[in-house]
């Protein structure tokens, strides 16, 4: 009995030792890959940081309003965020490539999926960045237009434009990522449609008199404005 136990233990130990001896070089390879990956990711980070500084990416983001948006969410600067993102994605990517060396069943498939997902992730990020640029630009344009035309609630108008563009951007990004695709699109369509319909009904039916009055006031105000600017001809 004791011999059997010892023999089984010995066999288990041998199998473990054999397995470990088989795994050890791969583990070492993976560690080396992880280390090299970290160095590559770090170098990439440094290079990208210099490139972003060269193209004045933060300046561009500040103009677009992305910096303010990120700082509101207590996030680092856009260039810092992008650099960190690239660093981690590179390192994790290389690390996963290293893990695939371990030859653990089933893991390789997931790693493959991860790599296939990366381009979509970057496209989604790009869409969000462009959306932020567009929302900042058009929100400011709406604000300036409303202020210079003396429209009521210029900030409300500007924020509405911003929210609408950001919502559109997020729905596009989620669609690209394939996350809750239908839900997001349907939610966006419902909200947008409801908003427009609500405004149309409120303005056209609910407030018929108000709408008429408002339009009359606006048009006569425009005429008055033109007259005033004309009387005080800037040129």
């Amino acid at each position: 009995m004791t011999d059997m136990i010892v023999s089984e233990l010995g066999q288990a130990w041998n199998e473990f030792a054999h397995g470990f001896a088989h795994l050890l070089p791969r583990l070492l390879e993976m560690l080396i890959i992880a280390l090299v990956g970290w160095v590559i990711a770090y170098l990439l980070k440094v290079m990208l940081r210099s490139l972003l500084r060269l193209v004045k990416f933060d300046h561009l983001s500040e103009r677009a309003g992305a910096t303010q948006l990120l700082s509101t969410a207590a996030l680092p600067s856009p260039s810092g965020l992008l650099v960190q993102l690239v660093f981690w994605i590179t390192w994790v990517g290389i690390l996963l490539a290293g893990i695939s060396f371990l030859d653990i069943g089933g893991l390789q498939k997931h790693i493959g999926v991860f790599f296939l997902y990366l381009p979509r992730f970057f496209v989604a990020l790009f869409v969000i960045f462009l959306g932020m640029l567009a929302s900042g630009f058009f929100a400011r344009a709406a604000l300036l237009g409303a202020v210079n035309s003396d429209l009521p609630s210029p900030h409300l108008l500007s924020q509405a434009v911003r929210v609408l563009i950001i919502a559109l951007t997020i729905s596009m990004a989620f669609e690209e990522l394939g996350l809750a695709q239908r839900t997001i699109i349907i939610a966006f369509a419902i909200v947008f449609g409801a908003l427009m319909l609500g405004m149309a009904i409120a303005f056209g039916l609910g407030g018929q008199d108000l709408a008429r009055e408002f339009l009359e006031r606006r048009l006569s105000a425009q005429r008055r404005e033109r007259k005033h600017e004309g009387d005080l001809s800037p040129l």
Partner: peptide
């Protein structure tokens, strides 16, 4: 013709 509005005048000058 009516003079250009202020923003247009600023853009032109």
């Amino acid at each position: 013709r009516p003079a250009p509005d202020l923003v247009a005048a600023l853009r032109q000058t």
